[in-house]
Nucleic acid binder design. Structure first.
Lengths: 336, 336
DNA sequence: CTGAAAGCGCTAACAA
DNA sequence: TTGTTAGCGCTTTCAG
């Protein structure tokens, strides 16, 4: 910057003014400074400026997700990035892979890089440790899962309602024996979807058969094995509600292996891309990652802009996509 | 930091030493400083330190990809992140959406944040503008596409060979009329895959029928329309090579709509997730995003560690996944 | 083993 | 409209 000032024949502060578009610089001077900066390929150091700048903003925000490679998280990420760019922000993203220790490490790493705000998918039992950062003026918005131990804005999918929709849909095709294949129960979304399943069955006056409920699934291979076991039970389910993408894929594989894909109904939570290309096409409860990401980012920037309204939870509705696999009627069961 | 020093009853430099794990601090002092830092919830400011630190490293690297939401790019991203974490690095990612202007904007945004290195998927015709950064000591590695106008390390998929494999596979099932559905020709990977298609046909003594080659496809809806048109030609192709994920999906849809999915062979470049669940299951030339990302990151850190070996291009081989759609023989054609 | 002083690149506050 | 001085939080250098 000093070099630019020297080359332009001005003081260093004038360069600063031009760089930051501050007023009270004559057009001629502005032009000379610009030219000098271009000649020297000068690139201002944002972080150096922040050290002294009144707002001290790094114009960078931190995002913690399950994995940047997870399609749902990646779409949320993209939506956040779109909003961030509008505000001149860059995004530092970190993958947690559902590891509580990783959550802590990532927050520290981002805090040391002085991100202006956090968007976090909670993994730990307790997010109260984040209060320090919020109190210091680094706002926090949670996505996909509600935080615990701290009151903060949060944007989540309508997990319970979505699951109820799925189960109600299956019930309407006469199913009474509906299996539930769920993820690790310590994951909030998994718990809520199971809750929706139980609630909707109860509302229909059906007792949950524990033999048809399997939790703790986390990958498609295990899901396939479990689905195969359920489907070869003496009294098998006539329909399956799979509560997560990989589980749905594993279940489809099991159905195909047993030649049951046109006999046993299936509704998955979280849409399977290319689900419309399978036979039968997959009926699914689709989430709206784009909207979730956008809303989360907007809440974050609202806080950065000084909004101090109380914490609120935004619930983004799901959409049932009817494509075939969920409309297979129960054998001998009541019609639609 | 001053507060921590005061609370611990030591000088500010001693705090710095403890924080950075420098030697020559007595265990007792170290402990007092640690405790004071914990009490005050002190979090060192990485950027402030870099201002004076000899290596001036922000321990942050910049990644430019087509889109963080693109499954291929997201997997590359995750692989890079894994290596980055080993080195104590965080990743600033930006989506370019194949927009040349976005490439420039993103590089500037990251340069101002003083990333220590760039991993870039080139979009523009020319990357020579990046030489400034390289000369200043910010290494650059390109992924997925080769850079132009600058010599730098680069990790890419074996596009030509992969395409040749696909076409050779189809030829071996007696096909002579093989259609090519390609992306925008200005995208390097699209061009190379077409080149592989042309080369392999030529090697088999077959002239390319221009009516069977369609370029400029970028989404599945257009691909569906184009595939339908080709398949309803008076003299339609007996096999299709689709050169990109979305195009493959669009082509499958067209085949299904026309009831031709078991009649016309299909091989796609870039594996379709859940391709094994379709009927027929989709034969594909799979890329290896994990390896690509890992290798790119390793090259970058090698440079950061002082490696000054000349620029080299690393080509990551593809793998043909045989699943069914690619093994449909040509009608009346020679057998396998 | 420890601390004081200088300065990294920049902006705030003020003076000219 | 412009420049000067101080200082952001930290590390370097060097003296104890």
């Amino acid at each position: 910057m000093r070099d630019v000032a020297r080359l332009a024949g001005v003081g260093i502060k004038t360069v600063s003014r031009v760089i930051n578009g501050e007023p009270n610089v004559s057009p001629g001077t502005t032009e000379r400074v610009r030219r000098a900066a271009a000649d020297l390929l000068y690139e201002p150091d944002l972080h150096a400026g922040n050290l002294r700048r009144a707002d001290g903003r790094s114009r960078t925000l931190g995002l913690l997700v399950s994995s940047v490679a997870n399609p749902f998280a990646a779409q949320v990420h993209r939506a956040i990035e779109r909003v961030a760019i509008e505000y001149g922000y860059a995004v530092l993203a970190a993958s947690l892979e559902d590891d509580p220790a990783a959550e802590l490490r990532a927050v520290t790493a981002l805090a040391r890089r002085r991100v202006d705000g956090f968007i976090v998918t909670p993994v730990r039992d307790d997010q109260s440790y984040l209060r320090v950062h919020v109190d210091r003026g680094t706002p926090l918005v949670c996505v996909d899962r509600a935080p615990r131990g701290i009151e903060t804005d949060c944007v989540v999918t309508a997990n319970v309602d979505g699951a109820r929709d799925a189960v109600r849909h299956l019930l309407s095709f006469g199913h009474r024996r509906i299996a539930f294949l769920g993820d690790l129960d310590r994951i909030e979304t998994a718990r809520l979807r199971r809750e929706g399943y139980v609630t909707e069955l109860a509302a229909a006056g059906i007792d949950v058969d524990p033999a048809l409920v399997v939790l703790g699934l986390h990958d498609d291979a295990t899901a396939t094995a479990v689905a195969r076991r359920l489907l070869t039970l003496p009294d098998p389910p006539t329909a399956i509600f799979s509560s997560q993408n990989l589980i749905t894929i594993g279940t489809i594989r099991a159905l195909q292996q047993l030649g049951l894909e046109h006999k046993v109904a299936l509704v998955g939570f979280d849409d399977v891309e290319t689900g419309d290309l399978m036979k039968p096409a997959i009926t699914a409860v689709a989430q709206d990652p784009d909207r979730i990401g956008r809303l989360a980012a907007e809440r974050l920037f609202a806080h950065l802009d000084g909004d101090t309204s109380p914490a609120r939870q935004v619930v983004v509705p799901t959409r049932l996509i009817v494509r075939g696999s969920g409309e297979i009627p129960a054998p001998g069961g009541a019609a639609h």
